[in-house]
Design a protein around this nucleic acid. Structure first.
Lengths: 212, 212
DNA sequence: GACCTTCTCGACACCCTGTTGACTCCGCCG
DNA sequence: CGGCGGAGTCAACAGGGTGTCGAGAAGGTC
């Protein structure tokens, strides 16, 4: 539960109805984000939706971004857990690993697309969101680079551009493809074809194989 | 000069000093965007920088976004011209064509990185910017898809995922890689390695070749 | 010199964020 | 039981942003 770095703004030692209010804020916020984008949701909207006044909102969270950060971290924790579970079920050298790795994130982001898109939007204004995003992408790049190096070491994949650079580019592709797809920004891949196409590019770039 | 669809807000039949003011606004805006991001630049900042008051700014442009749209379109026209020139110098089947195609956009976006990044940021709030971006990306996807199909037709590239879907994913990668690189958002590729890495992925995905 | 058009801006209306200070409510200690 | 203290609440404020309105200045034209 990566709620460690929660800003200690208001909200000291929650009790009784306090928990409820906090939960109501989180739920209302996610619900509103499913209807319209981050910049179109004001603190007042969230407060009203949660049945409190604006100042009371600020008693629980330092800002709109803080709520989003909280939702986003919860989603990331879920994504990690989900993917670890799926990967653990596969052997170390199972060719399905690449597919599963991509699919796990595709699924989790899709199931919380409002939070995902809002998170992307918030990077423009929130340093904290930028840092969080960087950290997470950095971890995934590390893992992917390691996997590529592993395949090269055992002779399954040819050498080429540095593994880390390749992983960075491929993950950037995943990020942007999923973003366009979820946001419906043309030109986008349909959600059900994104996985196959992404996988094809990964395999082409890593192994030099364009599978049929 | 794709200034056709300029919103006909204030600004009727410019004359004498009017042109100067308009130019001053465009220049000031681009200069400020080189210092800080779009949301941190207010209309007041631009107006002051251009030596006019805020209401006067609105005589020339309908909004901050309208100025950006104008700068962005100018940049796109330049990008198109630049790329056409570079492509024309290459034979139809020259293997350098992929590299040149990617390089042309890399160069032009890099030389106006402030406008590029602001454009990306504005997509969150401006429908017009979203539409423009979609249209442009759509054109590039069409061209890339056509090129892939050409290579497949002449037997130079194997069949695989649909050409248009592949082109969409690869262009999404280019977009995101260049964005991270220009914005300095980790994990990012260094500007001077981006081209090689992108090209490697394109070649791997299109031809199934991981070149050394 | 009257007149139209371009151009300019002070003042306004509105929306949003985040803060302050007073007030309620309630458990608990003495 | 009385009163202290912290949790919780919000009306009112301060401040900053956008976009508009209407009154005018400035200059060309008949």
């Amino acid at each position: 539960m990566t709620t460690a770095a929660r800003p200690t703004h208001g909200r000291r030692a929650p009790r009784a109805t306090g928990e409820d209010r906090e939960r109501a804020i989180l739920e209302t916020f996610e619900r509103l984000l499913e209807e319209r984008s981050l910049h179109a949701v004001s603190v007042d909207d969230v407060a009203r939706g949660a049945g409190i006044s604006r100042p009371t909102f600020y008693f629980y969270f330092a800002s709109k971004e803080a709520v989003l950060l909280s939702l986003f971290e919860r989603m990331l924790a879920q994504a990690r857990a989900d993917r670890d579970a799926r990967m653990q079920a596969l052997a170390e050298d199972d060719p399905q690993r690449w597919r599963e790795g991509i699919a796990a994130f595709h699924d989790i982001f899709r199931s919380h697309r409002a939070v995902t898109l809002a998170g992307a939007e918030a990077r423009a204004t929130s340093q904290e969101m930028r840092d969080l995003w960087s950290r997470v992408m950095g971890e995934w790049v590390d893992e992917a680079a390691e996997a590529i190096e592993g395949e090269r070491a055992r002779g399954a994949a040819p050498d080429g551009v540095p593994a880390r650079a390749l992983a960075t580019a491929l993950l950037a592709m995943n990020e942007q493809v999923l973003h366009s797809s979820f946001a419906g920004h043309e030109p986008a891949l349909a959600e059900d074809q994104a996985l196959d196409v992404l996988l094809a590019v990964w395999l082409g770039a890593v192994y030099g194989v364009v599978g049929a």
